[in-house]
Simulated scan of single mutants.
Amino acid sequence: MNTDKIALVTGANKGIGKEIARQLGQAGFTVLVGSRDLARGELAVKELLADGLDAVGIQLEVTDEKSVRTAAAQVESTYGRLDVLVNNAAIIPTGDDAASRIETGVLRSAFETNVIGLVGVTQALLPLLRKADRARIVNLSTSLASFAQVGDPESRMSTVLTLGYNSSKAAVNMVTVMLANELRETGILVNAADPGNCATDMGGWDAARTPAEGAAVAVRLATLGEDGPTGEVYAEEGRLPW
């Protein structure tokens, strides 16, 4: 069994996910680069290996139960445990829109990936996280899931009309809180990270923040000490208002 700390990042073949993998690798983790398309994941792995990091590709489509089970079995047979799970994979579905206009199928697709997929991956890997010493779970969230910010008509967040993304990420916050409560006595800390609007396929390449800057808060939560918080959402500037 590999004795290094093991971290799995979903959706890690590009963008913020790849930068989370990179920074965890720099912190000494063996990083499992989860990606829906294994070939694309292997390209990211090649890049990380060239930087001297310990990275391994793993095929993981979060909405495919068979893929999730296979990935969990692969982690178990190779490493026997998992120290960090970062649920990064998410979508803003094509056609995401205001509450008065969004098609129900579009809304459903957002929840399938962003919430149901996240829960399925977490459930599959939780037995391996329980085997680790003080494991950490980090779910990627957003300021667009903050009731305080979106509910403020003076906030830019109130003008973003993507009900599928916003509401599914608000559900991720609730998953985070409920799982943290459930695991509170185990030493496993569960938090959510808001990376901010970064220059990625999802955030738009004209965004001010880099993927590396966005990744930093998730990595900080993934490497919390024993006395770290649990059941909270953090952005770079601190705790995010609910």
Rank of each mutant, 00 (worst) to 15 (best):
S146W: 04
K131F: 00
I102G: 09
L107N: 08
A99R: 07
W242P: 00
L189H: 15
L144W: 09
G204C: 05
G117T: 00
I16R: 10
I102H: 03
E236Y: 14
L126A: 04
S143H: 13
F111Q: 07
S143N: 14
V9S: 01
A212K: 11
I6C: 01
V172T: 06
R220Q: 15
E154L: 12
A71W: 01
G17H: 01
T3Y: 06
L85C: 04
S35A: 15
G231A: 02
N87D: 00
M1I: 07
L128K: 02
Q123I: 09
A90V: 02
P153S: 08
V56G: 13
G28Y: 06
M202E: 04
L126C: 03
L163C: 13
A199C: 02
Q74F: 11
G25M: 05
L8G: 05
G80D: 03
L224D: 10
W205G: 10
L189N: 11
Y234C: 05
V75L: 02
E213F: 10
E42D: 15
K131T: 07
P211R: 12
V106T: 15
S100M: 11
N173F: 06
A98M: 03
D133H: 14
L53M: 09
S155H: 08
P127H: 00
G80S: 09
N173C: 02
R130V: 07
P93N: 01
N191A: 10
L189E: 04
A192S: 15
G231V: 07
A27M: 06
R40H: 13
I20R: 03
S109I: 12
N181Q: 14
R130G: 00
V115E: 09
A89C: 05
R36V: 01
D133L: 11
R130C: 05
P211V: 12
G57V: 08
Q149A: 13
V106L: 01
V86Q: 07
L129F: 02
A73G: 12
G151Y: 00
Y165A: 06
N2S: 14
Q26N: 06
L85V: 01
K66F: 00
P241L: 10
V190K: 04
I20F: 08
T223Q: 01
V75Y: 07
G17T: 01
L179H: 01
